[in-house]
Design a protein around this nucleic acid. Sequence first.
DNA 1: GCTGGAAATGGTAGCGCTATCATGCTTGGT
DNA 2: ACCAAGCATGATAGCGCTACCATTTCCAGC
Lengths: 366, 366
Amino acid sequence: MTIRSQGVRLLARKISRRGGSIVTIHDVAQHVGVSPMTVSRVINAEKNVREETRKKVLEAIKVLNYSPNMAARSLASQDSTRVALIYSNPSMSFLSEFLLGILQQSSQSGCQLLIESCEGPEGVADVLDKLRTVGVDGVILPPPLSDSTRVAKALKDMKLPFVGVATSRPLPDVSSVSIDDFKAAFAMTSRLVALGHKRIGFIKGHPNSFYSELRYNGYVEALTKAGIKVDQACVGQGYFTYRSGFDAAESLLSRPDRPTAVFASNDDMAAGAVATAHRLGLEVPDDVTIVGFDDTSMASSVWPELTTVRQPISDMAALGLKMLLEQIKSKRQGQALKPVHEIRDFAIIERQSSSAPVPDAEVGRK
Amino acid sequence: MTIRSQGVRLLARKISRRGGSIVTIHDVAQHVGVSPMTVSRVINAEKNVREETRKKVLEAIKVLNYSPNMAARSLASQDSTRVALIYSNPSMSFLSEFLLGILQQSSQSGCQLLIESCEGPEGVADVLDKLRTVGVDGVILPPPLSDSTRVAKALKDMKLPFVGVATSRPLPDVSSVSIDDFKAAFAMTSRLVALGHKRIGFIKGHPNSFYSELRYNGYVEALTKAGIKVDQACVGQGYFTYRSGFDAAESLLSRPDRPTAVFASNDDMAAGAVATAHRLGLEVPDDVTIVGFDDTSMASSVWPELTTVRQPISDMAALGLKMLLEQIKSKRQGQALKPVHEIRDFAIIERQSSSAPVPDAEVGRK
DNA sequence: GCTGGAAATGGTAGCGCTATCATGCTTGGT
DNA sequence: ACCAAGCATGATAGCGCTACCATTTCCAGC
């Protein structure tokens, strides 16, 4: 029996390799008493397999501790998908989490990854050129690129499927996964109100950014709902950088009727605001509560650690890649691309930079 | 001719797939007029190929824009190496760069990656257990794990090859890639001296950490060499955290004879020190120069941006992975593991947080 | 009970590459 | 000049999996 003798030869190899962990689809098939094809079908969740058979196979897979060989799979299925990840100067800590998610997913789905950084508008063109020559099957975009209509258009012209992660403005014909920035800002502001804050400042993000606007809108809505009037003197303009938060906070916090809480629309600006508070001799959170948005590493490295809104970045990235792979698959099957918009839940992380407002008398005592 | 008809079939596929970019080793071979084997040899830089042939092949590869199919390669060579990356709470921004390097290398060498995070000593045991069951071929360790003798011992017991990146204390029998922390600290301190600083403070890192010590030694050596006596009053103890830098700087900077420059042994502490300076009403760098170490994202997100020592993290990570893969290979061939220690060059990045000391009179003018 | 067609399963032939051995073609020592 | 030794190259056989088609099984409907 050819198969058997082959099996023996294999066995000899197995031992010399990674601790016996080379269990193939054949082993599983043999164990159950079906053909490898059937096992393959079960693995790929194809239909046309009797429920009973499927169960037996799944059990055998568990017993034998089988895990499919990605290389073989992608070779056989001609499905060596190459996905490009283009980033442009995001917060490094954001990227880090993002990469973790992407990595997890990509090793699971056995796709090749191409990481490209690009700076400035020409950078984008260069990178796209490169993608064209190298040949990729899809692109995944972290912010801020995920919000760029220019990039979106270019990719559409190239007929490349792509998914934006953490986009604020889901373009109608582009798939994306994000959180509800408006709702998150609303929730955070409401939380501050609930703590007892009446004068709540806000530091806006970059005016070009749509999610900057969403966050601001959430803030306004929450105040309005709480019956608090929005005072433009309490709203500062920032650009998502530490420095801009630093500066914006200065004008907010040096006012005699300074806010008792400041909501910065990202963590870098919040950290800058904390620095300003300290410089002005204000304690955080005793004299002023400062909260951020994103829960980047900055939020937990500064002191006091920032209360902030957390996006499940790594999950979102993984999901985004998964969506992208699905799109690529369906594109190959000639199906039209139906854009999907996934919304993930955010969470408010309470750390040491926020508290209920402390009455003046008490603060003065210090 | 079978091969030819096969080629035709292939061609039909090519068109339907990723924009014609499926050039195989056969195409290259045919183009040159040699066998696929020879091409394979050239690709893998094996010897026993005539220089003339090699050249022709390389040229054809370029002309045809061939790039090897990783899946096929790792399938054929039975070399589906799985490498685990275990990290434990490093600076996120460090991880980010680290991952970038790893990613680049891993997609180039077609190895599977397993990312695991672990917290605390039990965490390590759990993760190692997992590695055992999943089956990995090697482990790559970013700091601080790369410095852990406990982890090193555990991995050695499992007979798993591993490489530590950015280790300070290259264990004699463990491969590693790092920079010369001592030399870097020496260089940075000397730079401060060259700027004209006489009283230079230092904030130490965590006392458990060996590289913390190396950096301190570099500082001491540089001062000594410059004929400046080390004043223990100018040396603060930190723990690599922002907060600890904040606190340590307070005692250094509130002294009447405060140092005109402070060298913190990482960026987080330097950022904390900047915050303290601001809080004390000191301008950076006019009143006090503050420099860090590592060039994490923190360094360029705070304001003023930090002058710091940069490690080529992403390069180091890539190199580390490459070394690891080589070790795995040679282990499979039954060769003994010879630990290798690679040293990469660091660079001093000058940003806005450092300058020559400003004479008292001038400062007073402000 | 028999037939037709759908559902379930199996067989075969590679995916692109490399390990291995076989084969030519050089060398150089005697 | 002859043969062992060495080098450059080629032919063959899979790696583990899946696409595709062939076959078997099953059951509805007459």
